[in-house]
Design a protein around this nucleic acid. Structure first.
Length: 572
RNA sequence: GGGUCAAUAGCUCAGUUGGAUAGAGCACACGCCUUCUAAGCGUGGGGUCGGGAGUUCGAAUCUCUCUUGGCCCA
């Protein structure tokens, strides 16, 4: 793929005797098409050359014009004010892009990641607790990043760092011991376990002995007691079965399910390492690392006064394990911004573990905003949670209603409703920047109009419909790209050119919404094109060109949506 | 109190490392289906880019400060 920016920078560098590296960062893409495909603002050269920007622009243009035979890609250069505007030869550009998109599966994209190792820690729900809409963002954003890194040739490991450890299991075991036969946890594990959990908490408040038993259970669990371990494993596997229903709906996949419990025997080593650095100090009976000199005025607690470990210790053990096991270049943690301080502390303490700088530099907390209910924050104890399964099923039901209304003759309504409903939910979560909070409202999430998942799907379905009508796909070599020089086609061409670059931007910022916005732009551009241009026409050259453009747009829309975790129906 | 993130149209949000006249969707009004899916397309109204100061040829974007709100703090 030709890099037009590079070509322009290269030529200006020769003339202005400046470094190509600098110039390339100056070159920008004008918002308005009439200002060309690329633009070089000469203002910043004005000072050192001691000339007015328009004069500089004119001088560069003159010299560039002399070399025009060296740059067949450039059609013309215009000076507007202090700007030097470059117009790329449309024919050249169009051919280049169609070629690239045609071979999208085998393009050079895989070189970008260069086999670097990326570890993504996402979803990570708590065992025996409801899987609610608060877990959606981690699952969906993490999943999208997983797909995109992989697509760009990174070697990605997805980890579901389950919350399957902690004193609450001592309580659950006690509750199960006492009243296990009263609850049908096989049938409805999470709801029943939640009931037991609430009940045992009440009991603990009233009876100190029960609380003591709970503590003992957890201790026994840690020591590998057979009975406790068996019950714990039962809770874990029953919960996972429940979670799997949601993961199946969302299409989430993980390479590792090692949760907190997995690191339970790996924490003594962490404490030992930290101890030997001399930075692990006693404070109010707890073992802490002071981070004041690192600009973090809250110390990191490694071991509590009662001798139990903390989330921080477990995360440190995970870092050490992952560095050894996956040799990661980047390790991403997908959680809400509530945990910002926690990860700041952990990443700082990780520098004391004696691991290579590569690892500590690769740690990154990818934080996102919270999902709030119109009434405020969700809370499991308060009982005001919306379960993910419930949301997804509602989405499917609503999608089915729309299908009945718009296209009652459609085959596979169930399957399409699933893709559309889930697609709407996923896209809704990926369309705004991560950091934004989201107030949960059914009508907003399950809206199928405007900038939504179903809009992308609908546009894709239209491309398929056109291809079906055309009955054949012309060969790339037979396309007369001159037939694609209208404003609408060119708009699409330019967007297609940006596809790979968009994906790279996503990984640079760990921000899948950049891809979401891009796909909306592409779908809009195609919809305008579709409305303004008849595609199946008398003139076969025109038809071939437009059908082919339709084909590649469909291809990119589908590829892009799949990367976000959204499936495309062929009809809807 | 300390730290941190945010504030752009009535609502939800874009705005690529500072660049040309700040853009979408929803909502509202109007127009477009005897021809490729109207879950669509087009037109229109609507802005003190939270306030102020600064840096710069140029600031929604960078710096400082203030205001409001979210989140975190053994």
């Amino acid at each position: 793929m030709k890099n037009f920016k590079q070509i322009i920078a290269n030529k200006i560098a020769e003339i202005a005797e400046l470094s190509e590296q600098n110039l390339i960062t100056y070159i920008e893409i004008p918002k308005d098409i009439k200002n060309g495909d690329y633009s070089f603002p000469c203002f910043r050269l004005a000072k050192e050359l001691k000339k007015a920007p328009p004069i500089i622009a004119n001088e560069i243009k003159e010299k560039l014009d002399e070399k025009s035979n060296e740059m067949p890609e450039i059609e013309k250069i215009e000076v507007v004010g202090g700007y030097l505007n470059f117009f790329i030869n449309k024919d050249e550009l169009t051919k280049e892009i169609l070629q690239q998109v045609t071979n999208i599966e085998t393009s050079e994209k895989s070189k970008v990641g260069n086999g670097k190792n990326i570890v993504i820690d996402y979803s990570s729900p708590n065992i025996a607790k409801p899987f609610h809409i608060g877990h959606l963002r981690s699952t969906v954003i993490g999943g999208a990043l997983y797909n995109i890194y992989k697509y760009l040739g990174y070697n990605v490991t997805g980890i579901n760092h389950l919350g399957d450890y902690g004193t609450q299991f001592g309580k659950l075991i006690e509750g199960y011991k006492l009243w296990g036969n009263e609850y049908n946890i096989e049938k409805d594990p999470i709801n029943e376990l939640t009931k037991i959990y609430i009940r045992i908490n009440e009991a603990c408040k009233q009876d100190e002995q029960i609380l003591e038993n709970c503590r003992n259970n957890f201790k026994k669990l840690e020591e590998g007691d057979k009975y406790c371990t068996e019950i714990w494993e039962k809770f874990r596997s029953l919960s996972l079965k429940e979670f799997q229903k949601v993961y199946d709906l969302l299409g989430s996949k993980f390479d590792s399910w090692n949760g907190e419990a997995f690191y339970s025997d790996k924490m003594p080593e962490i404490i030992d390492i930290l101890d030997r650095t001399g930075k692990l100090i006693e404070s109010q009976g707890a073992k802490i690392i002071d981070l004041e000199d690192k600009g973090i005025n809250t110390p990191c607690i490694i071991e509590k006064s009662n001798g139990s470990t903390t989330y921080a210790t477990r995360d440190l053990a995970a870092i050490l394990y992952r560095a050894r096991t996956y040799d990661f270049d980047k390790a991403l943690y997908l959680t809400s911004y509530e945990q910002t301080l926690h990860f700041k502390q952990v990443f700082e303490v990780a520098k004391l573990l004696g691991i290579d700088e590569k690892y500590t530099k690769g740690l990154e907390h990818v934080s996102f905003g919270m999902i709030l209910l119109p009434t405020g924050k969700m809370s499991t104890r308060g009982g005001n949670v919306i379960k993910l399964e419930e949301l997804l099923n509602e989405a499917i039901t609503r999608a089915k209603d729309v299908i009945e209304q718009k296209n009652p003759e459609l085959e596979n309504k169930e399957e399409v409703a699933k893709k559309v409903g889930i697609g709407a939910v996923i896209f809704n979560d990926l369309s705004a920047s991560r950091i934004k909070d989201e107030v949960f409202e059914w009508d907003a999430i399950l809206n199928f109009q405007g900038e939504t998942g179903p809009y992308l799907q609908y546009t894709y379905v239209r491309t398929k419909s056109v291809l079906e009508k055309a009955e054949y796909l012309p060969k790339m070599e037979e396309i007369d790209t001159k037939k694609l020089q209208d404003e609408y086609s060119q708009n699409i061409i330019k967007l297609l050119y940006n596809f790979e670059n968009t994906l790279i931007q996503v990984t640079e910022k760990n921000e899948p919404s950049i891809l979401s916005r891009y796909l909306i732009e592409l779908a809009k551009a195609y919809s305008s094109f579709y409305n303004e241009n008849k595609i199946i026409v008398e003139d076969k050259d025109v038809q071939n060109a437009r059908v082919y453009l339709t084909y590649v747009v469909g291809k990119v829309l589908k590829e892009g949506a799949n990367l976000l975790g959204i499936e495309m129906p062929e009809k809807m």
